[in-house]
Simulated scan of single mutants.
Amino acid sequence: MGPDIGLQLPCRLPPSRLVALARDAEHAGFDEVWIVEDCFYAGGVATAASVLAATERVVVGIGILPTVVRNAAFTAMELAALADLHPRRLIAGLGHGMRDWMRQVGAAPASPLTALAEHLDAVRALLAGETVTVQGRYVRLDGVRLEFPPEAVPPVLAGVRGPKSLEVSGRHADGTLLAEPASPAYITAARRAIAEGHTDPRRPHRLAAYTWFHVGEDLDEARDALRPAIAAAVTDPAWAAHLEPLGYAGQARELADLPEEERAGALPDAWIDELAVVGTPRDCAARIGELYRAGADAVVLLPGPDTAGQLARAGADLLPLLRS
């Protein structure tokens, strides 16, 4: 027994490449593939629809759709269509969206927590076939009911990171999607914050975690493949919530004071080992086990630049080891 294993499809690639990668991931034995809707790459719903149509078994997660750029009823309509066409193969992810991007498109709410809670409640109710009337601060619906609610209702996860948002996820979502880096310490802390809002033990709450990933023959080579991406993230204040449970936040600020070209070289090896699934296949399998024991129901691997090569290597060497 262990977590479901997913692969994050990189938004930096055009949709046609993502569809091919998704087919390869399904063939390699991954349980899930995840679509990222970042500004201003391919749309999450259209890409998910294409990936679902091009595959047969793999579950497709959308991680995430920024709630405030879509009307909740139309979000539910899109998700319902996908879930009806591809039963039990969709996981919907909703979140705040990156604040700077939301400002850039004129959709930054005064209260992100309220906006997220209202959208989660409305979308989940509509997908469940309910008639929804609500006059909220951000969601206003008058007797709205989907004509084609899906028979198999997809879970709706909140893609969030900070304690207050995690509590909202616990109260209003079916699960949580954690962005990378997801260390065992961060997953444990996130589970505690989610529990503040998740008060019904009869309602399961699924936690999926993105994590950087590189498998290789040599630990140092594997670390170096991820070093630039990790250095860039840990020096961004937006990722502070991921580092605080490890006690790294202060050191990350010191790292950020270095010239940009020096940061990757100054990143301690121990940080990479803590913040990623990295090393030999056995190293990676052991780390995934630690993430599972910390509370991750799904571990979603985020490779470095060589996505196709790492996908193949994971399918050949890592997934069989996890399932043996």
Rank of each mutant, 00 (worst) to 15 (best):
H242G: 02
G315I: 11
A270P: 00
L52H: 03
P149Q: 07
A76D: 10
P87L: 09
V234L: 05
R23Y: 00
I272K: 08
R124K: 08
E221Y: 08
E196F: 09
V299H: 10
M98E: 14
D38I: 02
G197M: 05
P112D: 04
V144C: 06
L246T: 08
G295Q: 10
I5Q: 02
G279K: 10
G136L: 01
R99E: 14
E217G: 15
C11V: 15
G289V: 10
A83P: 06
R227L: 03
A294V: 05
G265C: 06
W239E: 08
E78G: 07
D174L: 11
V234K: 13
A238H: 14
A158Q: 05
F148R: 12
A222F: 10
M98A: 14
L79K: 11
G143W: 01
E260H: 13
Q135P: 01
H214G: 07
H214A: 15
A179G: 15
A158P: 03
A48H: 02
D31R: 00
A25E: 02
I91K: 13
P109C: 01
V234N: 12
I230Y: 02
G289T: 08
E118V: 07
G315V: 10
L255W: 01
A231P: 03
G216I: 06
P3L: 05
V68F: 14
L82V: 01
G159A: 13
R253V: 13
L7W: 03
R287M: 09
L18Q: 04
T55D: 06
L157E: 02
E244W: 05
R70T: 10
Q8H: 08
E221L: 14
L79Y: 14
E196I: 11
A128M: 01
P305R: 10
E290M: 04
R206T: 15
V299Q: 08
W34E: 01
D317N: 12
L146A: 00
A54T: 02
V123N: 01
A264L: 08
D257L: 14
Y210S: 12
G143D: 03
A208E: 12
E130L: 04
V51Y: 00
D218R: 06
D4W: 09
F30D: 00
Q8V: 14
A241K: 01
T75W: 01
A241H: 11
L275N: 09
D283F: 00
R171N: 02
E78F: 08
V144N: 02
D224R: 15
D317I: 07
P281R: 11
R70H: 15
A173Q: 07
G265V: 09
A314R: 01
P87V: 10
T280E: 10
A296L: 03
A152R: 05
